[in-house]
Simulated assay, not measured.
Amino acid sequence: MKRYRQFEPILISDFEVSKWQHPVHQHNHYEMIYIKKGSGIHVINQISIPYQAGDVFLLGPEEAHYFEIDKPSRFIYLKFTDLYLNKEENNTYEYIQNLEYLIKSRETHLSGFKLRADDRLTVELIFDLILSLKNNMLWNRELIWMQILTLSHILKRNMPELLHLETRSRDMQAIFCYIHKNIYLPDELRVNVMAKYFNITTDYMGPYFKRNAGTTLRAYIQHYRSALLKQRIASGKYSLKQIAAEFGLTDESHVSKIIQKANSDMSSN
């Protein structure tokens, strides 16, 4: 399978075609794809998903995809790497957390985001603004980044796990997404709180998760939190005190203990 490699932190691509030119492929970056016009089929990991104007897709390096075009289609691509996600200026915790959540939980929305009518209009305007900034990427770098963060906020609030209780799913992907969203809020990850959120009993929550995930709820949360903590430390941009505050931890020593325990658990497996 062909694999496209991108070395620039971010690229913007805008093109219109009546026939797709690329084979099924993967890439080493993330892609936020906006359908400006047209319709057809988006094949992601061998699953066929109809697309139309106004749809948005978020793909990661693991996804293999291509398009089958019915009506001439215009695509706008925002392609960014981990380097761009973790660049030095990214110091707005809340918005970075939104983007991290979307990237980690994208399995839920590989079929495309089902946006509300008002959000569809807003997203269209944002992509028009991004295109207006495209010709001078260096000069407009920060403005482009601000639009990506705004898009992540809009897309996140259209995730099915965050809708009203009557439409809330209880499947494992919904539970994973809940964990990813609340990893910065330890109190929201207590078993009794999660059980109430998903309308199941506290005693059933732990066994249900282990049976379907192959690991305990506590171990999964610890592993995911530890992975994020390591990314923060590796970036060299945050002190342990800042990291502890972001993740709702007691102090700097708590950060170190979590990472040490995760490393110990991995080495014992």
Rank of each mutant, 00 (worst) to 15 (best):
residue 1 M to A: 10
residue 2 K to V: 14
residue 9 P to Y: 10
residue 12 I to S: 01
residue 12 I to G: 00
residue 12 I to F: 11
residue 15 F to K: 06
residue 17 V to Y: 11
residue 18 S to Q: 11
residue 19 K to R: 13
residue 22 H to W: 12
residue 22 H to N: 08
residue 25 H to A: 06
residue 25 H to F: 07
residue 28 N to F: 10
residue 28 N to Y: 06
residue 33 I to S: 02
residue 33 I to Y: 01
residue 34 Y to D: 03
residue 35 I to A: 03
residue 39 S to R: 10
residue 39 S to D: 09
residue 42 H to S: 09
residue 44 I to C: 11
residue 45 N to E: 12
residue 47 I to K: 14
residue 47 I to Y: 00
residue 48 S to F: 09
residue 50 P to N: 07
residue 52 Q to E: 15
residue 54 G to K: 09
residue 60 G to V: 08
residue 61 P to E: 14
residue 64 A to E: 13
residue 64 A to H: 08
residue 69 I to V: 15
residue 72 P to G: 06
residue 76 I to R: 05
residue 77 Y to H: 15
residue 80 F to V: 02
residue 81 T to C: 04
residue 83 L to H: 14
residue 83 L to D: 14
residue 85 L to T: 05
residue 88 E to Y: 10
residue 89 E to H: 05
residue 91 N to C: 03
residue 92 T to Y: 11
residue 96 I to Q: 10
residue 96 I to G: 04
residue 96 I to Y: 05
residue 97 Q to Y: 05
residue 98 N to C: 09
residue 98 N to S: 04
residue 99 L to K: 02
residue 99 L to T: 04
residue 102 L to D: 02
residue 102 L to S: 03
residue 105 S to T: 10
residue 107 E to S: 08
residue 107 E to C: 02
residue 108 T to L: 13
residue 109 H to E: 04
residue 110 L to H: 02
residue 111 S to V: 07
residue 116 R to V: 04
residue 116 R to Y: 04
residue 118 D to L: 12
residue 118 D to P: 00
residue 118 D to K: 12
residue 118 D to N: 12
residue 118 D to R: 10
residue 119 D to H: 14
residue 120 R to N: 01
residue 123 V to R: 01
residue 129 L to E: 13
residue 132 S to E: 11
residue 133 L to E: 05
residue 134 K to L: 04
residue 135 N to R: 13
residue 135 N to F: 11
residue 136 N to L: 02
residue 138 L to W: 00
residue 138 L to G: 00
residue 139 W to P: 00
residue 139 W to F: 14
residue 139 W to A: 11
residue 143 L to A: 15
residue 145 W to G: 14
residue 147 Q to H: 10
residue 148 I to F: 03
residue 148 I to W: 03
residue 149 L to N: 07
residue 149 L to Y: 13
residue 150 T to S: 13
residue 155 L to R: 08
residue 155 L to T: 06
residue 160 P to G: 04
residue 160 P to F: 03
residue 166 E to P: 01
residue 169 S to C: 03
residue 169 S to W: 00
residue 170 R to S: 14
residue 180 H to A: 15
residue 182 N to A: 09
residue 183 I to K: 09
residue 186 P to I: 09
residue 186 P to S: 06
residue 191 V to I: 15
residue 192 N to A: 12
residue 196 K to A: 14
residue 197 Y to A: 03
residue 198 F to T: 02
residue 199 N to Y: 00
residue 199 N to R: 13
residue 208 Y to P: 00
residue 213 A to R: 09
residue 214 G to K: 07
residue 214 G to A: 10
residue 216 T to N: 08
residue 218 R to C: 00
residue 220 Y to N: 07
residue 221 I to Y: 02
residue 222 Q to H: 14
residue 222 Q to V: 06
residue 224 Y to A: 04
residue 224 Y to S: 08
residue 227 A to F: 06
residue 229 L to F: 07
residue 229 L to K: 04
residue 229 L to G: 04
residue 229 L to P: 03
residue 230 K to N: 05
residue 230 K to R: 11
residue 233 I to V: 15
residue 233 I to H: 03
residue 234 A to V: 05
residue 235 S to F: 07
residue 237 K to Q: 15
residue 240 L to I: 05
residue 242 Q to R: 08
residue 243 I to N: 01
residue 245 A to Y: 07
residue 246 E to G: 01
residue 248 G to W: 05
residue 249 L to G: 01
residue 249 L to A: 03
residue 252 E to R: 14
residue 255 V to Q: 01
residue 257 K to S: 09
residue 258 I to E: 08
residue 260 Q to W: 01
residue 263 N to H: 12
residue 265 D to V: 09
residue 269 N to V: 11
